[in-house]
Amino acid sequence: MSYEILAINPGSTSTKIGVYKDGNEILEETIRHSVEEIEKCGTILNQLDFREKVILEVLEKKKYNIKNLSAVVGRGGLLRPIEGGTYKVNEKMLEELRQGLQGHHACNLGAILADGIAKLLNIEAFIVDPGVVDELNDLARVSGLPEIRRKSIFHALNQKAVGKRYARDIGKKYEDLNLIIAHLGGGISVGAHENGRVVDVNNAFDGEGPFSPERSGSLPVGELIKLCYSGKYTLEELKKRITGKGGFVAYVGTNDVKEVYKMALSGDKKCKLLLDAMAYQIAKEIGRASVVLCGKVDAVIITGGIAYNEDIQRFIKKMVGFIAPFVVYPGEDELLALAQGGLRVLKGEEIAKEY
């Protein structure tokens, strides 16, 4: 039996959609939304109607018959911490996303849009591995201060999809492997995957771990405290310096790795140092993850947009190649990852979880 799945990934100024038949792409489209269109809505929740309307219009324009769909899968939003997997969209999930209990972000619209379109067709709606996936072991939660508990917020969708992809490629189960997976993009997260669970990972949302094109990474605590009380920045400005205006943006004014790399190749020593330092910190974080797994590592995998850069690949491999086989899956295909999660449930390979 064949299954066709609509995947929906809403961003701040775009909605990405894809239709997949048994995991193979039928169509993919990035729908851009103007700033005026977004601002006219006022709140993120008020964007639902026009986003759903434009999704259906694009599918009609592409001459796709939505009655062929078996399920709709949306990008998971800012929910309470949950373990990884594919989840049925239910009323409890929808209510919490509408209320923004963990924060308001465009990704919260993914499950709501999936549910709305699925109800039109009387089919199932799912989400897959949202960024709040939390499978940390108890040791990883302890920070050193009782007021602060370490959190798990990372690129769960891509990391989990890549782990399962690697397992398929070598003819094994993801749950039978110990993997270190580094997602290298605008933010960077490095997860220790032990038998299918991410038992330790840096909180990429708050800028922990290696610095990245737009995030500061972990900082010297004493110096950060001094900066907090320097009077130079407000709370919101400092939060932006950590996530959004840190990393390459803070040093050279751009989050475009290709641009920084181009400047480095043309002789800019500062840009060369920054690229090497980022790769150095990524490698250190991978080394830390190998200790979490007691050195029993089946593969070290790098993924995400930055993984396309062969010089960065080589730098990291030189430092961590001794740990385990070094594997590169560049890019991040989030729509496909969403569709694959739904497909596993429809085919009976995975049981959908209840939120």
Rank of each mutant, 00 (worst) to 15 (best):
K173P: 06
P10G: 12
A277H: 09
G186R: 02
L145A: 13
M278F: 01
F211W: 03
Q47W: 03
A299P: 05
T30H: 07
K160A: 05
E135D: 14
V252N: 04
L45F: 10
G305T: 12
A111I: 04
L235T: 10
V257E: 14
E57Y: 01
K61M: 00
D268Y: 07
G185H: 14
L177F: 11
V198P: 00
N108I: 07
Y229N: 11
L184K: 12
I38N: 12
G77D: 06
G85D: 06
G287C: 11
K119I: 02
F50L: 15
K239H: 03
I323S: 09
C228I: 01
L336E: 10
Y87N: 03
K347M: 11
A339S: 11
A279H: 03
I26S: 12
L273S: 11
K258G: 13
L121G: 08
R150C: 04
V221P: 01
D169K: 15
L336P: 03
I31W: 01
R314H: 05
H33T: 10
E36N: 14
L343V: 02
G321L: 09
G253W: 06
D169Q: 15
A352P: 00
N195V: 01
V201H: 06
E354T: 15
I170A: 05
V58W: 00
N202C: 09
K296R: 15
V199N: 03
G187H: 05
G222W: 00
D176E: 13
H105N: 10
C294D: 14
A167M: 10
G110N: 08
D333P: 13
T234A: 14
I282N: 12
N46K: 15
T254I: 04
S14F: 04
P81N: 08
T86I: 12
A192D: 06
H193R: 09
V133M: 03
L27R: 04
Y308P: 13
V198M: 10
G85T: 14
E96K: 15
A167E: 06
G18M: 09
I5E: 00
K173V: 04
L109A: 07
A111Y: 01
G11F: 02
D298L: 05
P330C: 07
A307W: 02
A289E: 10
R98W: 13
R165N: 09
D276L: 12
V128R: 14
K272F: 08
Y280S: 10
Y87F: 05
K53C: 10
V260T: 09
I316F: 00
I148N: 09
V133L: 02
G191C: 15
V162T: 12
V128E: 06
S34D: 05
Y229K: 08
K239M: 11
R141P: 09
K232P: 04
Q159E: 12
Q99H: 11
V328D: 05
G76F: 04
R168Y: 11
S2D: 13
S212Q: 03
V35R: 13
G244L: 06
I148Y: 08
L219I: 03
N9K: 07
N137G: 14
